[in-house]
Amino acid sequence: MGGYSLERLNVLVVDDSPHMRHLVKVLLFSFGCRTVVEAEDVPEADKLLQDFPADLIICDWNMPSEDGISFVRRLRTGEESRNPYVPVILMTGHTQKERILTARDAGVNEFLAKPISAKSLFQRIRAIIERPWAFVRAETYCGPDRRRKQVDLDHPNRRQKVPAKGTPGIRGAAVRDDHFRSASGAISASGGRS
């Protein structure tokens, strides 16, 4: 049997609860991660990110000085952001659909409902490894592409491909069919897109 070895990953855990940080760290170390740094709030995370080349950020939603949603928005769009494409897993006890959509619209890659388990956390990490999402930079949104299915459409409203013009890595778009995974399975969220 085999699996992904995570030992080379640099992970930043941001949570105001020392218990949750401890729990997540224990899980990450048990997955083989060796470099896990923690921040008790967003200002500390900002400071750490000046020098720490995070490959993955696992962040809480509710925190006193600045919440996780605002942090992710700044990460994706802030002029001072050094790593706007870093994958983010947002942990929260709020699992209502509108909350999940808010997280998705802020630019979160994966949503992890509390209470967390080894399986649920690893599932989110594996999803980011196996199903990376292109990034969308639009007037009202910057973050992982919220549309999840690539389907060829023969329709005048289909989004046009952006001319490459020597910009490798820019591609056309897909249909508006979104799935934002939650701990309890797939929560489908069709609706307004970028």
Partner: peptide, 15 residues
């Protein structure tokens, strides 16, 4: 028009 950017999968590259 929104721009779609293919970001290198740094996570996959490191696992």
């Amino acid at each position: 028009e929104p721009v779609i950017i293919e970001v290198p999968n740094r996570l996959k590259a490191k696992v």
